[in-house]
Simulated scan of single mutants.
Amino acid sequence: MNTSPSTPNTGPERVKTVHVAVAAVSRHEGGREQVLVAQRHTHQHQGGLLEFPGGKVEPGESAAAALVRELDEEVGLRVPETGLSFELRVTHDYGDRRVQLDLYRVTGFSGEPQGREDQPLMWLDVDALDPDTFPAANRRMIQVLRLPARTLITGADVTPDGLAGRLEGWSGSQCLLRCPELDDAAYQVLASACGPAARSAGCPLLLHGAPERLKRVPDTEGLHLPWREAARLTERPISSGYRLGVSCHDRASLEHAQRLGADYAFLSPVRPTASHPERSPLGWDGFEALVAELDLPVYALGGVGGDEVMESRRHGGCGVAGIGFWWH
Rank of each mutant, 00 (worst) to 15 (best):
N2V: 07
N9Y: 10
G11R: 15
P12Q: 11
V15M: 14
V15F: 14
K16Q: 15
V22N: 00
R27P: 03
G31M: 06
R32W: 02
V35H: 11
L36C: 01
R40I: 00
R40A: 01
T42Q: 08
H45D: 10
L49T: 12
E51D: 04
K56G: 03
K56T: 12
K56E: 14
G60L: 10
S62Y: 09
A64R: 05
L67C: 02
R69A: 02
E70H: 09
E73H: 03
E74F: 01
G76I: 14
G76H: 07
R78T: 15
E81L: 01
T82P: 00
G83Y: 11
L88F: 13
R89N: 10
H92G: 06
D93K: 08
D96L: 03
L101D: 06
D102F: 15
E112A: 11
E112K: 15
E117T: 01
Q119A: 12
Q119G: 08
M122H: 02
L124V: 10
A128D: 09
P131D: 04
F134N: 00
F134I: 03
P135V: 01
A136S: 08
A136H: 12
R139G: 09
I142V: 03
A156Q: 11
A156K: 11
A156C: 06
D161Y: 07
G165D: 07
R166G: 04
L167T: 02
E168L: 06
S171T: 10
S173Y: 07
Q174E: 08
L176Q: 10
L176G: 07
P180V: 03
E181N: 06
D184S: 12
Y187L: 06
Y187V: 06
Y187C: 05
V189N: 04
V189L: 07
A201Y: 10
C203H: 05
P204L: 07
L205D: 02
L205N: 00
L206I: 01
A210V: 10
R213I: 02
E221R: 09
G222L: 09
H224V: 13
W227Q: 14
E229R: 09
E235W: 08
R236Q: 07
S239Y: 12
G241Y: 13
S247Y: 02
S247W: 01
A252G: 07
E255V: 08
E255C: 13
A257S: 12
L260Y: 10
L260P: 09
L260E: 06
S268R: 05
P277K: 14
W284Y: 02
G286K: 00
A289S: 13
L290Q: 08
A292K: 12
Y299E: 09
G302A: 11
E308T: 11
E311M: 15
E311P: 05
S312Q: 13
R313Q: 15
H315Y: 12
I323N: 06
